[in-house]
Amino acid sequence: MLLDTALTATVPLQTLPTGAELVDTFVIPALTFLVGFLAIYFLGKTVLTPVVRRVLDSKGFDSSVKSLADSIMGVVVWVLALTVALTLAGFGGFIAALGVFGGAVALAVGFAAQDLLGNFVAGIFILKDKPFQVGDWIEVNDISGRVQDIDLRVTRVKTFDNELVTVPNGDLANNALTNPVAFDKLRQKFVFGIGYDDDIEQAKDAILQEANDHEEILADPAPDIRVTELGDSAVGLQTRFWIDEPSRGDFVRVRSDLVQAVKERFDAEGIDMPYPHTQLTGGIDVEGIQTASATPSDD
């Protein structure tokens, strides 16, 4: 009897939590979390996301960038609502630990995918700055062709040999790129060579007349010719002319038409179009060499 009394006195009996304690421990934090999450999520969707969309509209961003921004803002709003709700519910320590873990994961992913992220960022700037558009003829490094598609990571170019080249956007953003059709006019140059004995003014008049007679060569700005080369066998006349609403097909065809017309005109007027040639002069001395015949040996 005394032993039972001592055990009762030294070991306290475990009591079940009361209703008020349950409310304070579980119900109120759960309600706080729920209300905080819904409030922040609603504000983000109705205020923050539309503001970002209006800013992108005012800056003239492409629809692909705006669609991407909507997706990113959806994730940001969700994470923000979850973070605020957990903090209000009293789980700040959990948020801190999650932040450290997330930072480490983000750092590792960033190092592993830095080229991919660089192409991704370059794609955003290409869609924003619009150095070229779908359908444009571009030249970069050794690639020349028409843009088929602009993605956030790569740009697809169809070459004039009917090949599809996938170019990372980082290469387009970090290298000099030529867009010959960016404006409504394009100037082209071609050097015609005439002989040193030919009349330069006569040749100029013939070239200008053929250029002015071509329907697709603009009269304003007018074609012009300059003597630019004194070569080994010819005098170079650089002819410059403009075409309207250029495309590569138009440029190649118009230049070909002009070169053929000038060649035929020069032939008709007796103007020489010399080509490089090499003439050897001098003589060759040939000396006879007497070779002693071998004496057969007696075995």
Rank of each mutant, 00 (worst) to 15 (best):
V55Y: 11
A97N: 12
L107D: 04
V76E: 04
V52E: 02
Q114Y: 09
A112L: 04
Y41H: 14
A104P: 03
A89T: 11
M73D: 05
G93D: 14
V77S: 06
S63W: 00
A69F: 03
V84Q: 15
F111Y: 13
L86P: 10
S71H: 00
V47I: 13
K45Q: 05
L48G: 03
G74R: 00
A104Y: 01
G103V: 02
L86V: 12
A85W: 15
V100D: 01
A108G: 04
A96L: 07
A106L: 07
T49I: 06
S58I: 14
T83V: 07
V100C: 04
V100T: 06
Y41Q: 10
T49S: 09
V47T: 13
V100K: 02
S63T: 01
L56R: 12
F91K: 10
V75K: 11
D70I: 00
G110K: 02
V84R: 08
S71M: 04
W78Y: 13
L48Y: 05
T87D: 14
S64G: 07
A104T: 01
T87W: 09
F111T: 08
A89H: 14
V76D: 06
V79M: 02
G103R: 03
G102H: 00
F91W: 08
L56S: 14
A113N: 12
A106D: 02
D70G: 02
F61Y: 15
F61G: 11
A96S: 11
A85I: 15
T46I: 10
V51Y: 09
V84A: 15
